[in-house]
Amino acid sequence: MGTHVASEDRYDSVEYRRCGHSGLHLPRLSLGLWQNFGSDRDLEGQRRILLRAFDLGVFHLDLANNYGPPPGSAEENLGRILARDLRPHRDELVITTKAGYVMGPGPHQHGGSRKYLLSSLDRSLRRMGLDYVDVFYSHRPDPETPLEETMLALHHAVVSGRAMYAGISSYGPAATREAARIMRELGTPLVVHQPSYSMLNRWVEDGLLAAADDEGMGVVAFSPLAQGVLTSRYLGGDVPADSRAGVGRPSWREHMLSDTVLERARGLNEIAAERGQSLAQMAISWVLRDQGPRTVTTALVGASSVEQLEHNLGALDAPEFTDEELRRVDRWAVESDVNIWAGATAGRP
């Protein structure tokens, strides 16, 4: 098959917002390639999801060097689909990647060193067949590397033309402010922070959303469905064999389906049903709810099928939450120890 013929009304389908103080715009819902785009998934199925997303106005595709499995395969698969179908639309796409987590053995295959970040970015570009990415992130803070070195690497990625913009992920409020200060002085401001955020993982409300707003950064929220806990898959207490819990993904923890967590998910599900939404749709709507200047720019969702993608996009059609609904949500939407990335911020608060 040849080049995909894109829908002419693709920008009429979804709202998009400016990312912080930059000129970069992102759709309100973006597609994350973390879990469903590795070599263990059918490439044709991945292609259908990506093309449907683009036709529905989801032009932001988020990756990292270690996405798969195995690490690197999500970027390779995206590269194949870009070459086959979406190359004429490269200028419309916002493609982002990261480096920071482990990619291989030795001291220069993880962390925040200049050597690792820039060599990893070069490999990512080769895997995707790209000349540049739109955002290059420091995937996590590294307490063993000076923050100045990590930020200089991001700065160099931009000034060398490998990336259009720079961002950080999972940095705490104080480290976010310091990183932003360093980058401003270098002349390459950070435009985006990517933290985990969901109804069961609200750490960003304790200073991070305020820091991002103060520093002029957009916020890309990942894991708004708490890795599937905030969907209908586990509400009955069973674990489907093909689910993240059933497959035993490395990012999964057994306590995520404790009786307490399931009780909270069921309480939230009742509110969602009254709103005419699924639990997953309400979880996305809630992350994107109006919080004034601290409102999240976009939420990243994965998709294992076109149907799941379209269902998640339905969250954008929901009415705003009433004050009473938010009060009821707060009864159940409490910290539930599902933030497996919390340790990443331990060295830099």
Rank of each mutant, 00 (worst) to 15 (best):
V334W: 07
Y165C: 00
W332C: 03
D134E: 11
A346G: 04
S7A: 15
Q277D: 05
E335D: 15
D259L: 06
N77P: 07
S13K: 14
R162Y: 02
H155I: 07
A212N: 11
A179L: 09
S138Q: 13
L313T: 03
R87W: 06
A83V: 07
A64H: 04
G228R: 01
E205I: 11
N65F: 00
L154I: 03
G314Q: 05
R80M: 05
E149C: 09
R294V: 05
T345S: 15
Q291N: 15
I284K: 02
D317V: 03
E270H: 11
M256S: 01
S278A: 10
D55N: 07
K115T: 14
R266F: 04
P27D: 08
D85K: 05
A53I: 02
I168E: 02
Q281T: 03
S138C: 15
R244V: 04
Q277F: 01
N77F: 00
D142E: 06
P195R: 08
V58K: 01
L152P: 00
R184C: 06
L257I: 10
E274K: 12
M256R: 02
E149I: 05
G112I: 09
P319T: 10
D131E: 15
D238S: 15
P69D: 11
L50G: 01
A272H: 03
L118P: 10
L61P: 01
P107I: 12
Q291M: 15
S198T: 06
G161P: 00
G104I: 09
T260V: 13
P143R: 12
A64V: 03
G347T: 10
T231F: 00
N36A: 13
P69R: 10
L230G: 00
G172C: 08
R244N: 12
R18A: 13
L78I: 09
D85Y: 04
V135P: 02
M217L: 12
D259E: 15
N201Y: 03
V219I: 14
L309W: 03
G314F: 02
L125W: 05
D12W: 05
M183E: 08
E310Q: 13
R289F: 09
R52Q: 10
H255R: 14
F59G: 00
Q194F: 09
Q281C: 04
E44W: 02
E15L: 12
D323L: 13
R123C: 06
Q109L: 09
W332L: 07
R18Q: 14
S251I: 11
L326R: 11
D42C: 11
P189N: 07
Q46F: 01
N66I: 15
V287P: 00
G187A: 10
R90T: 04
L78A: 05
R84P: 01
V133L: 11
H89P: 04
S39Q: 12
V247Y: 08
N269D: 15
L288W: 04
P319V: 09
D62Y: 08
D323R: 14
E44C: 00
M256E: 01
N339P: 08
A179D: 07
A272M: 03
W286Y: 12
S243Q: 08
H156P: 00
L33G: 07
C19M: 14
R266H: 08
P195T: 08
R28I: 08
Y137L: 06
V261Y: 01
L268Y: 02
R177L: 12
V159L: 05
A241W: 07
S119A: 14
A175T: 06
I95G: 02
V247S: 07
L118M: 13
T231K: 00
A221N: 01
A157D: 04
D213H: 14
Y197R: 04
